[in-house]
Amino acid sequence: MFRSRPRKRALRIFFATDIHGSERCFRKFLAAAQSYEADALVLGGDIAGKGLVPIRADNGTFTAQVRGETVAVPRADEQRLRDDINRLGFYSVVADDESVERMSKDARFLDEAFRKAIIEQIEAWCRLADERLAANVRILITPGNDDPLAIDPVLKSAPRIECPEGELCELGPVLMASCGDVTPTPWNTEREFSEDELGGRLAKMLDQVPPGRRVVVNFHCPPYGSGLDFAAELDETLKPVIRSGRPSIIPVGSKAVRDAIKKYQPVVGLHGHIHESRAAQQIGKTMCLNPGSDYTADVLRGAIVDFADDGSYIDFLFTSG
């Protein structure tokens, strides 16, 4: 009996997603290049935080509304308060009484401050990547549906970051096709499309793949009914639906993404969006992965994926740390 020789690794990707503004998770993401000997880091969407929490400074006391509760700390604990807010996926800004009051009443003013905080953080992250990564490590960051469109030019203009959103990108022995768009959600974010529209956007990219080239898809939305897309069913008030005394869990992924995977058969699908649905599933010849997200616990969940020099998929390993 003859055994085939093990395929030599030509490319190792470390993939993570849905860190929602977590400073600690982003630093862990950069450190993964050395820890896991990755050739390329891929951050697959929803990198921005979920909102902005104003902190009122008054006579050495810092006060903020955190999860509906008033939290007050002395000046010495300001950073701890801001770290706690960041851990929940939010930004914070210290403001005077007038600005805090205006943010509570003027949604547009609050949104402008929120978007400013997002862009400032991403610009800082781009600089940090330049400082910390070895020159031979590639870093690719693409947006997700929770990321405002305003971040795209920031990522694309950063000299150390690659942002191939909506494009095919050469990545060693494979091509990577990236799309941060999703099907409609209850939150009406900026990158939502109908199944037909999303299918058209995916086909526009994948139809350009030269015959014989192996492809990795970096699609933020997971394929429907794949086990990568299970989430709680919500009612019209965004509360979990209870059936038979238990929360109802349903597939919420995209049928267009699943159809594209079945038609084009990429070697690997990298997905996110549904934090609680960490899973791997083979669809035809495609290994689809969702490493999940646990950023509120300061835990970076990821996936190491290895490829041979002909672009074929070798193996994967989920990570947590």
Rank of each mutant, 00 (worst) to 15 (best):
C179G: 00
A38K: 05
V42L: 15
R127Y: 01
V73L: 15
E170M: 00
V257P: 08
D229L: 01
I141W: 03
A232M: 13
G245M: 13
A16I: 00
A107R: 13
S22T: 03
V174A: 11
A48M: 06
A64I: 04
R160M: 09
R258G: 03
V182Q: 00
V299Y: 07
I85R: 07
P211S: 12
N86F: 04
G245E: 13
T296I: 10
G60N: 05
G227I: 03
G60P: 12
D309V: 00
E192D: 10
V257D: 11
E123Y: 01
E98G: 00
L317G: 12
V216Q: 02
A280H: 09
I55A: 11
L52R: 07
T183W: 02
D309A: 15
L228G: 04
I118M: 09
H275M: 11
P74M: 10
L234T: 08
G51P: 02
L171M: 15
F114V: 02
D259C: 00
A72R: 15
T286S: 12
I19A: 02
R115D: 10
D97E: 14
L202W: 09
G269R: 05
N59D: 14
F109P: 04
G212N: 08
P291Q: 12
I250D: 08
D97A: 15
D309S: 15
A76D: 13
S277K: 05
D181W: 08
G227E: 11
A33W: 03
P222E: 07
V100H: 03
D97K: 12
R243Y: 10
E276S: 15
I122F: 11
G45K: 06
E112G: 02
L110Y: 02
R80D: 12
Q265P: 00
V137A: 08
I118Q: 08
N136G: 04
T17E: 07
I304E: 14
H20N: 14
V267F: 05
G51E: 11
R80L: 10
E98T: 13
P164Y: 08
I314C: 13
W125G: 07
G284N: 09
D96Y: 04
R108N: 06
R115A: 00
A95H: 04
F318Q: 12
I283S: 12
A57G: 09
L110W: 11
T185D: 14
M103D: 07
Q265Y: 01
R3T: 12
R108E: 14
F219G: 05
D259I: 07
E192H: 04
